[in-house]
Simulated assay, not measured.
Amino acid sequence: MKRDTHKPTGPSQRMLRVGELVRHALSGVFARGEIEDPLLEGKVITVPEVRMTQDLKLANAYIMPLGGVGAEEIVAALNRHHRFIRGRVAPELDLKFAPDLRFFVDNTFDEFGKIDALLRSDRVQRDIAKDEDED
């Protein structure tokens, strides 16, 4: 009998579950305004995704401020306060070790916009119409 040596390429269920726990905990910290930084005061920050490393020691949090204004500066501020944020998030995770946090700007909305614009372009619409005419 031949063994299946295929290794999964995507995140494990545990990585996804812990990522979701971190995402919820971060959202709570941001919603309560626990971080004292003039740049972050009054900002609404969403956390669409958190990706965990396989060993669960690093959490890459993708964030986007409401309206997308000043995203790079907000990410820089969050990365400056990552130790404080880690201390606020850790009690909610129920893990042996709290993951280190890194923040990045979430660009998925930009990518969706580019794909949508491409799909609505005249060239693609012409090809779709041509395919429908052939059927």
Rank of each mutant, 00 (worst) to 15 (best):
E134Y: 04
Y62N: 07
G67C: 10
I63L: 12
M15W: 02
L119E: 13
L119H: 08
R126M: 13
D127C: 14
T53R: 11
L56S: 04
V18C: 11
E111W: 04
D122T: 14
M15L: 03
G10E: 14
R123E: 14
V50E: 01
A71Y: 11
K2L: 08
P91H: 07
R86T: 04
E36N: 13
F109E: 12
V75N: 02
P65S: 04
L93M: 14
E92C: 00
H82L: 10
G70T: 09
G113T: 13
H82G: 06
Q125A: 09
R126K: 12
F103W: 07
I35Q: 02
R51P: 01
P8H: 03
E49H: 02
R88V: 02
D100Q: 12
V29L: 04
D100R: 13
A77G: 04
A61G: 06
D127I: 13
A129R: 15
E111C: 00
T46W: 04
R17A: 14
S12R: 01
I85C: 01
R3W: 01
V18K: 00
N107G: 08
D37S: 07
R83L: 07
R102H: 10
T46H: 05
L40C: 09
E132I: 15
G68R: 06
E20H: 08
R88G: 00
V124E: 14
I45V: 08
D100F: 09
K7W: 11
L40F: 11
D37I: 04
V18R: 03
S121P: 04
K130A: 11
E36C: 08
E92M: 02
K114C: 14
P65F: 03
E36A: 12
M52I: 00
P48R: 07
E134W: 06
L16N: 09
L118V: 15
H24M: 11
L21Q: 13
V29G: 00
L58H: 12
L40P: 07
A61C: 13
V29M: 03
F109A: 13
E20R: 10
P65G: 05
H6E: 12
I74C: 09
V89S: 00
R23D: 00
T46D: 12
V75P: 00
K114N: 15
K2A: 10
P91W: 05
P91C: 12
R51G: 04
G68T: 11
T53I: 09
A25P: 04
V89C: 00
D110Q: 11
H81V: 03
A25Y: 03
R123K: 10
E134G: 07
K2I: 11
V47Y: 01
S27A: 12
A59D: 01
D131N: 01
V22F: 04
H24I: 10
L40E: 11
D116R: 15
K114H: 15
D37H: 08
A61D: 02
R51D: 06
M52R: 01
G42H: 09
G28K: 04
L101Q: 07
L21W: 05
G87S: 06
R23A: 01
D116N: 15
G70D: 10
L56Q: 09
P48H: 06
R126P: 06
S121L: 05
N60Y: 02
R17C: 08
I128E: 13
D100M: 10
L101M: 08
S27G: 14
L56H: 03
V75R: 03
E41A: 12
Q13P: 00
R32L: 09
F104L: 08
